[in-house]
Design a binder for these strands. Structure first.
Length: 758
DNA sequence: CCAATTCCTG
DNA sequence: CAGGAATTGG
């Protein structure tokens, strides 16, 4: 590796710790990219100049990844959000207990309008005396929501509505190919319920059909309103987050608990993922998933989509709010989950005030929505078939928000883009939680499973994301518009960086490393006339990729395939610098500007320089590598290169000299000691210093080499080689034979020989 | 002491 | 080629 030294070399910024501290982080935000890249050795080295940019940009670059980022859904058995049958009988109990399973309620709230309504009612019912009383001891809820007496009625309304919904769901089709255990469980439950339902209601289908359209419209409205509620909740969560960020810096002892809470948050996020997935899967069988039921502008879909995106960006905190709120309401102490410990807000000072404010906002938002939902469904019931059996069917899970919550992957069919406000909100959400993104679950699960496929109930191990590999596919062509006029080899983007973002740098590095050989990359348009291959490292934190190093082998082979097409466009030469057969001495390949590390291009240049100078001074090197930012390390590396060149050179000389001696050569002038361009020794030397054979070995070098060979021969022949220092004299001779280096080497990049055609 | 060099090893 | 040890010269 040419770059090991670079990595270690002492630039203030590329100290080893700087390079690896992030890599060793347990939550490597780049695992996502690492795994698909076949875990390229260079990948982990990416120190992540600005990690936050990653999760920020990657979803944009790879829309699929955005939806994947939730991955690893862990289904909690027995907590199916639509075990509504249990919900119904438990309603009364809940009123006493005050707390149903918070998560269940949570999921109910978001998954389906009907379910949400029921959840809202349930929440309100239970919340009335309990949670909301905690939240609003003063009874402020009354001003917003209906009076408690009405709640009983509302609950009944919603119950019936849910029954209707269930029957609807069944009529529209059974659940999607439910492969999941959880689904099956619910399904069987649903079916039994439905059977009872059918028995009870007899022939109420006509009535249902009549009221079908009306209910659909209502559901649409409901969806919109739920969406609104979500947005409000999101806003609250944002505020919570801001507060959390402040508070998290206060105590270390909270970290552990906060961490576990973070885990919990991710779990919630996973559930959200599952939620979306479910809804996506059940699409075909769901009324709400049918495109015909989407409003013309598909606002619900886009908005839900937007929510999905936001959740995707901040999965951790998305659901914590509701969940933990309930949990701690049980203990009378409200705490808002945001990765901080329970009781975080109980601390002295503004915590309580914040909690109060939060309570109010959250409570009012929720209450408003509950109110609307209730009313909607109350109205809806007027048209609902009275004959519907009093059973709750669960395939609502696939209904309601289903299509809207389709993950980003599905949004190609999205009729319209997000609205401005949605985009703004999304951006806001983006900016609010950048630092937590690395904690996101490993994406890829989503796309890893075909719709309706079994996702198991458990989190998949990270890195087992089958969907990730397709990440790097799109960017390259898009990011690197071909510029076919470049007469040079694949040019690394230079000048104004085509991709200023670290992510893109990183991505492109990988792309280059992995597929540059097969892709034409021409950037001449943005290049100054002189520089050619820009091998500037991307700052100290970006260890230079062995671009040419990786390029050359494939280019010489696989590159051929495209050469036929590309060469006509001006690209000549097979690989890396090797393929250059330019007709102009001023042609160069190489770095365009100063860089700290040495690139393969520099190595090649050094080798070509060896044809002229075997013992270059440091000043000479600095003169002829103007594009290298010299420091102690780089200098010694270059010197070391030449030392190695000499080593190889002398070894070959000695070897051939000994061979000549063995062969009985007597006169040093004999042909065996001639160094013709057809000789084996020349072939070896040329192979070593001019591997691609794109540079004509200067005659002077042949003379020097021949002289060295002769000297070795003589020394060996005369037995001087027994002297431990017998080579020194030869070295002294050779070191005086350095010839001037052509001026073309003074230019940055690799010189290209003029009169050489492959 | 440091830079340059060689030798040896991987 | 890189690392490292040893040597040398300034």
């Amino acid at each position: 590796m040419y770059f090991r030294r670079n990595l270690r070399s002492g630039g203030a910024m590329d100290s080893p710790s700087d390079l690896f501290c992030q890599q060793s982080s347990p939550m490597c935000p780049f695992g996502l990219y690492r795994s698909p890249s076949g875990s390229a050795p260079s990948a982990p080295r990416y120190p992540g100049g600005s990690p936050p940019a990653y999760p920020l940009v990657s979803p944009l670059l790879h829309p699929s990844s955005a939806s994947q980022s939730w991955g690893g859904y862990r289904q909690r058995p027995g907590l199916g959000p639509f075990q509504a049958p249990s919900l119904e009988p438990e309603l009364e109990e809940e009123e006493e207990d005050g707390v149903e399973d918070p998560e269940q309620e949570d999921e109910l709230l978001v998954r389906d309008p009907a379910a949400a309504a029921a959840a809202a009612v349930a929440a309100a019912t239970m919340v009335g005396p309990t949670l909301l009383s905690h939240l609003f001891p003063g009874g402020m809820r009354r001003g917003v929501v209906t009076e408690p007496e009405e709640w009983g009625q509302d609950v009944l309304h919603v119950k019936r509505l849910r029954m209707v919904d269930g029957s609807l769901g069944k009529r529209d089709g059974e659940e999607a190919q439910g492969g999941e255990e959880e689904k099956r469980g619910r399904k069987t439950d649903t079916q039994t319920r439905k059977d009872e339902e059918d028995d009870g209601r007899g022939g109420g289908q006509e009535q249902r059909k009549e009221s079908r359209e009306g209910r659909k419209r209502q559901r649409q409205e409901l969806k919109l309103q739920l969406q609104e509620t979500r947005e409000k909740l999101l806003e609250l969560q944002k505020k919570v987050w801001k507060a959390c960020d402040k508070q998290q810096t206060q105590g270390d002892q909270r970290k552990d608990r906060g961490k576990s809470d973070g885990e919990k948050g991710r779990m919630e996020a996973e559930e959200m993922e599952e939620m979306f997935l479910d809804e996506g899967e059940g699409g075909d069988h769901d009324v709400f998933n049918n495109e015909e039921f989407l409003p013309p502008d598909s606002s619900s879909k886009t908005s839900q989509q937007n929510v999905s995106g936001m959740d995707d960006l901040s999965p951790d905190e998305t659901m914590d709010l509701d969940v933990d709120l309930d949990q701690d309401a049980e203990r009378g102490s409200l705490w808002v989950g945001c990765g901080v410990a329970h009781g975080e807000w109980e601390g002295p000072g503004g915590g309580q005030k914040f909690a109060q404010a939060l309570k109010q906002e959250l409570g009012s938002a929720v209450a408003r929505v509950i109110d609307r939902v209730i009313r909607l469904y109350a109205d809806a019931e007027n048209t609902a078939p009275p004959g519907s059996a009093a059973l709750v069917v669960h395939n609502q899970r696939n209904g309601g928000l289903g299509p809207a919550l389709a993950t980003i992957e599905n949004d190609q069919r999205r009729p319209s883009g997000p609205t401005l406000t949605q985009a703004l909100e999304q951006a806001e959400a983006l900016s609010l939680v950048p630092s937590r993104q690395p904690e996101k679950r490993n994406p890829g699960l989503h796309s890893g499973f075909p719709p309706g496929a079994h996702r198991g109930g458990r989190p998949l191990p990270p890195q087992s994301s089958p969907g990730v590999p397709h990440l790097p596919q799109p960017p390259l062509p898009a990011l690197l518009p071909p510029r076919a006029k470049d007469p040079f080899l694949p040019a690394f983007p230079s000048g104004p960086p085509a991709v200023p973002l670290p992510l893109l740098h990183y991505t492109m590095q990988h792309l280059f490393a992995r597929s540059l050989s097969n892709l034409p990359l021409h950037h001449k348009d943005s290049l100054p006339p002189e520089p050619f291959l820009d091998f500037r490292s991307h700052g100290p934190s970006f260890p230079p990729l062995p671009l040419l190093g990786q390029l050359e082998p494939p280019l010489s082979s696989s590159g051929r395939g495209r050469d036929g097409a590309i060469r006509d466009g001006g690209i000549r030469g097979g690989g890396g610098l090797g393929g250059l057969d330019g007709g102009d001495a001023s042609l160069y390949l190489g770095a365009a500007s100063s860089q700290e590390g040495l690139s393969p291009c520099h190595l090649k240049k050094a080798k070509l320089m060896f044809f002229y100078t075997r013992y270059p001074s440091s000043n000479t090197l600095k003169t002829y590598f103007p594009d290298v930012k010299f420091n102690r390390c780089v200098t010694s590396q270059l010197i070391k290169w030449f030392s190695n060149f000499r080593e190889f050179f002398y070894i070959q000389m000695e070897r051939f000299a000994r061979q000549a001696v063995r062969d009985g050569v007597i006169a040093p002038r004999e042909g065996a000691l001639r160094l013709g361009r057809n000789s084996e020794l020349f072939r070896i030397l040329n192979m070593h210093y001019n591997k691609s054979n794109d540079y004509q070995v200067p005659e002077r070098f042949l003379e020097v080499a021949e002289l060295a060979l002769r000297e070795f021969f003589i020394a060996i022949q005369s037995g001087r080689d027994t002297d431990p220092c017998w080579k020194k004299s030869i070295y002294k001779i050779i070191c005086k034979l350095d010839s001037p280096i052509p001026d073309s080497f003074r230019l940055p990049g690799c010189p290209v020989d003029t009169h050489r055609s492959v």
